[in-house]
């Protein structure tokens, strides 16, 4: 589904941020990317969203060269990036309105997604009146209403407290069950990376050389306290060093 061929990017000349990345992801795959601050995690997501242009190399999505933003790729930003001057409903409807979706269909779709994310009761609220965890849900909702097939999460739970974070992770897993998606979660949190990724990619200095298979532990809540989970975390930690 997503294919990166020898991808390179730099913001300023001679300061490469993304270096020779080759990676292929399947249609239904969920991966997590972990890496230290400044290694290029946000940058790679922006490239995949079509919001930055590669300096060299290419990105293919569904065998099509990515040249511009793609309507079915949704990015959930670190700080939400919601529109505070719009209500929850307004944040969700803007993309549909821009696509001239009939009002009835639009409302139906938004209701359905908000219901699935358990925030339907917040529909008429402005963003300042909702909590951090709820904001993340709105950010997801506004991309899901656009029938997205690729979701890019930039440290989605970084600003949430431990309890809300767990809630959020489980919500994400339930979204995966309801919607067929290719999903990339960028995180600082090793446990989150292990819980939410079928593959864990350790990113260092703009490279993605280390890929850890994690099919067994992915999304398994009962395994979270297990030795295997703990060992996996240690393995990831070692590779990060």
């Amino acid at each position: 589904m997503i294919k990166m061929n020898n991808l390179n990017f730099s913001y300023e000349e001679n300061k490469p941020v993304i270096r020779h990345i080759n990676l292929e992801l399947d249609k239904d795959e969920k991966i997590s990317i972990i890496g230290r601050s400044g290694c290029g995690k946000t940058t790679i997501l922006l490239l995949l969203a079509g919001l930055l242009k590669p300096v060299s190399g290419e990105i293919l999505i569904n065998n099509q060269l990515l040249l511009d933003v793609r309507r079915q790729t949704g990015m959930i930003f670190q700080n939400g990036g919601l529109f505070p001057w719009k209500t929850v409903y307004g944040n969700c409807s803007l993309g549909l309105k821009a696509r001239h979706t009939p009002k009835k269909e639009m409302d139906h779709k938004i209701d359905q997604v908000l219901d699935n994310l358990e925030i339907k009761h917040l529909k008429a609220q402005y963003i300042k009146n909702i909590s951090g965890g709820q904001k993340q849900r709105v950010a997801i909702a506004r991309t899901l209403v656009l029938d997205s097939d690729v979701l890019l999460f930039d440290e989605p739970s970084a600003s949430l407290d431990a309890f809300t974070k767990e809630n959020f992770q489980d919500l994400l897993l339930s979204i995966y069950e309801k919607y067929p998606l290719c999903s990339i979660v960028v995180t600082h949190d090793i446990e989150e990376a292990v819980y939410l990724g079928q593959k864990i990619i350790v990113m260092k200095d703009g490279k993605m050389d280390e890929i850890i298979d994690n099919k067994k532990l992915f999304g398994d809540k009962s395994a979270k306290k297990s030795i295997a989970f703990y060992e996996k975390c240690i393995e990831v930690r070692k590779r990060l060093e």
Partner: peptide, 27 residues
């Protein structure tokens, strides 16, 4: 205006008029 707001607006492919009406003016 945070750059994420512009990013999202861009990924929605808003046209110029929508950009002014929905993003810049209210902001």
């Amino acid at each position: 205006i945070p750059k994420e707001v512009f990013y999202h607006a861009k990924s929605l492919s808003l046209n110029k008029k929508e950009m002014y009406k929905e993003i810049l003016f209210p902001a």
